[in-house]
């Protein structure tokens, strides 16, 4: 590459003022002494005038205005929860809901002493080695329901007064179960 070509190549950066001071002086000197380089300089100035940086940026900004970037939520690291905890929590929640449901049905005018005390259960035998059953939440629910149904049936048999809400819930549950079986 000869000196003329080298300086020609520097003209665009000279126009935009991005040359080093030393190179600026070299180009200025060359421009002053060469008509050809001066002519090229004028042509390139025309390019930068026609394609102004500000106009191009404005155009790009207009185009990008309608671009909406929606960032996804970063997935948090999953906490390890043992299965037994899930089962236990579900069972406790089920018992609590049941207890609240039954309690809310107790008439306000009933004295505390009128409420039948839950008989304490005394073990006839002492079990030395007790291994707790490892039950899943579904199994626990089934056990609770079985217990409720047993109490309900024995209450009917002994002619005791039945909680109407409990009766309604059990009827619905049995109807639902029958319907499921029919579907199957």
């Amino acid at each position: 590459m000869n000196n003329h070509e080298r300086i020609s190549q520097m003209i665009p950066d000279y126009i935009n003022g991005t040359l080093s001071e030393v190179d600026m002086h070299i180009v200025e000197k060359a421009l002053a002494s060469s008509h050809d380089l001066q002519h090229k300089h004028d042509e390139y100035v025309h390019v930068f005038t026609a394609l102004k940086k500000e106009d191009i940026i404005q155009l790009m900004n207009d185009e990008v205005e309608s671009v909406d970037v929606i960032l996804p939520f970063k997935a948090k690291r999953k906490m390890f929860i043992p299965k037994i905890m899930i089962g236990t929590t579900t069972s406790i929640a089920a018992c609590l809901l049941l207890w609240i449901g039954i309690n809310e049905q107790t008439p306000i005018n009933v004295e505390k002493s009128d409420i039948m005390k839950i008989p304490s259960i005394e073990l006839t035998e002492t079990i030395d080695e007790y291994t707790p059953l490892e039950l899943q939440s579904e199994e626990v629910e089934e056990v609770i329901l079985d217990e409720i149904l047993t109490v309900y049936v024995s209450d009917i048999e002994s002619g005791k007064e039945i909680n109407p809400l409990l009766e309604k819930e059990i009827t619905n549950y049995l109807l639902q179960e029958n319907a499921d079986e029919e579907v199957l």
């Binding site: 190549q9 042509e43 025309h46």
Partner: peptide, 17 residues
């Protein structure tokens, strides 16, 4: 890159002329 930039300006200049 310097050559590319210069050639781009040169082509644009010719195009505008």
């Amino acid at each position: 890159l310097k050559a590319n930039y210069f050639q781009a300006v040169q082509k644009l200049s010719q195009y505008l002329s």
